[in-house]
Amino acid sequence: MDALRHYFRLHRSNCIGALARIARQPFASALTILVIAIALALPAALRVAVSNADAMSESWQGAADFTVYLKLDVATEAARRTARAIESRDDVAAVTLIDRDAALAEFRAKSGFGEALDALDGNPLPHALVVRPKSGVAADVEALAAAIGKLPETDLVQVDTAWVARLRAMLALAGRLVDLATVLLGLAVAIVVGNTIRLEINSRSTEIEVTKLVGGTDGFIRRPFLYLGLWYGLAGALIAWTLVTGGLWVLGPPVRTLAALYGSTFALHGLSLPESGVLLAGGAILGWAGAGLAAARHLRAIEPQ
């Protein structure tokens, strides 16, 4: 019980002592912490960017619109009925009918093939319906398209989800790249902390030597350095969080304006609570680990002479 209390008292005093040590050299500590902050802010910011892009691509309802071409012999009245029938489905948000006569007129005016069209007898264009599904999920869209394809009036359903799929694939790739960057920059954080701790160990070699001489165990000697690493990592993570959150705060209004111009209510979202927790804990753990590596490597070398 006493040993346990002693253990916790040592931890507390090391924990506070390490903080005091950082405060005693504000400039050097600030530089280290800033480097760590940037190394942590980069993957955090990229992650937020990808997740926002994800959210944005989901919010693009238009991405899922598809076109239904009705059979040529379907009359205008029947086409309107079909449109209404489809629109009444639960999974459909809206249906727009493109009347074949209106389409022909538009085509004649815009395409420059007017004379070629005159050579044909009658209107070669069918009635068309532009269907906007409620869900943007590819599987839902395809299920809806298949259902409409079975209607007797339907000639052809043209779903162009390929580009959405491509965008999704690109975002998945970007996410994977961010994962890689996170690993590399996390390693960088551990190395930066490790190097700082190595210098700290060298500058405190007398203290380490004396402590070993009066019977200090490896754990006793290592602990202050581990806490130093922990604080460096945690402080870096806090600043990284502030950088990312501040950046989003600055970008928020122009993004909202831009989204409004496209008729969207899209707004940037920042780091969620769990993500913030991961960032802070990750920084602290990386700092601790970097310090642990440096301590394991360099403390042994300092022996009483």
């Binding site: 007398t206 004396v210 001489l213 019977g215 006793f220």
Partner: peptide
Amino acid sequence: RRKIPAFRQRLGVVFQDHKLLYD
């Protein structure tokens, strides 16, 4: 090696150059 700290705790050592911690 791991038993050295406990061993040294039972031993008092005085050095010519004191080996005090000046901070």
